[in-house]
Design a protein around this nucleic acid. Structure first.
Lengths: 171, 171
DNA sequence: TATTGTTATACTCTATAACTATA
DNA sequence: TATAGTTATAGAGTATAACAATA
């Protein structure tokens, strides 16, 4: 470190205290959690968005790409790419609907089901590592507090906001 | 409990329960918080990374791009682009160092300082909205719990992990 | 020769718009 | 004409590598 970095009387400190509020902590920890989870499922050959999609399809087999796009708040062409990747890995199948041949019904394959099983294990490990600082009681308290916020903020359970595009501002 | 359950098929429900753990909630809420904050500061003409940079420079005026890159965990060329944008907006100044003419010393301009003031206001509003579901006591509890996790996880105070690149997995 | 900052380039993510097949 | 999915294309973000100035 440059030992003599101006004997400043720090005019900035007053103007820009480090963000210490709970909102920043929440964003910081959330990004950290998402990043660590991504690394772990990456070792299973899955990207984080893959995991969410896979789960949604497993939960409601046969659903269409359109409905996924709507639930995720994402444009249909994006789902094409996402499903392409999942299909190439052999985790989901597209089947042309018999009733309306415009639709693709989506199904999780046997491999996909196995992958989801491993994801579940990894998620448990992840949570345990992430909350290592807290005992069981505090974990319950924290989850309850977060749950109340999520509900009040109107978040869709199980849907990570990372899918949908942020409104872009001119730079 | 299930006295006479219909022979439901739904093989997926058992295989893929919606993620309900605290880790997912944390990631979900963190992304939500970051997104909302981004919208708000966007109205001030700042992107979220701008805010962090501006704060770091204000806190330690005269620091170099190299040192910022190290603290953020990003490559130096990225800092070039980030500072370019901030300089173009008139929020920071690059000054060629007299002692070592390879360095650019970074300073927050008067406009930048004003912007930081507005950011502080916006951040307070943001936090208040985000935690609307909680009373003051619960907010303190939550922040304490998050702080313990952040410390145990080794997060650098005030540095959002969103700056640094996630290790990419082959897809 | 090593270091700071910069430019050139490429790759990923994600959107918009145009297009095909089906209804 | 309207809808599901796809392809083509563009823009933002971010990295790697080569480079110029300075030490």
């Amino acid at each position: 470190m440059s030992s003599d970095r101006q004997p400043v009387e720090d005019p900035g400190a007053a103007a820009a205290p480090p963000p210490s509020g709970g909102a920043f902590l929440l964003a910081q920890l959330g990004a950290h959690a998402a990043g660590r989870f991504g690394e772990r499922v990456g070792e299973l050959g899955l990207a984080p968005p893959d995991v969410g999609l896979l789960r949604m399809i497993a939960l409601e087999p046969g659903r269409s790409q359109r409905s996924l796009a709507a639930d995720l708040g994402v444009v249909p062409s994006r789902v094409v790419a996402l499903i392409d990747s999942l299909e190439k890995k052999g985790f989901v199948e597209r089947r042309r609907s018999a009733e309306d041949r415009r639709h693709h019904e989506l199904y999780v394959s046997e491999d996909g089901r196995r992958a989801l099983g491993r994801v579940r294990e990894v998620a448990a490990l992840h949570e345990d590592d992430l909350f290592a600082a807290l005992d069981e009681e505090d974990r319950v308290r924290l989850t309850a507090l977060l749950g109340r916020i999520a509900e009040q903020q109107g978040l869709t359970p199980g849907v990570h906001p990372g899918y949908r595009q942020l409104p872009k501002r001119p730079n």
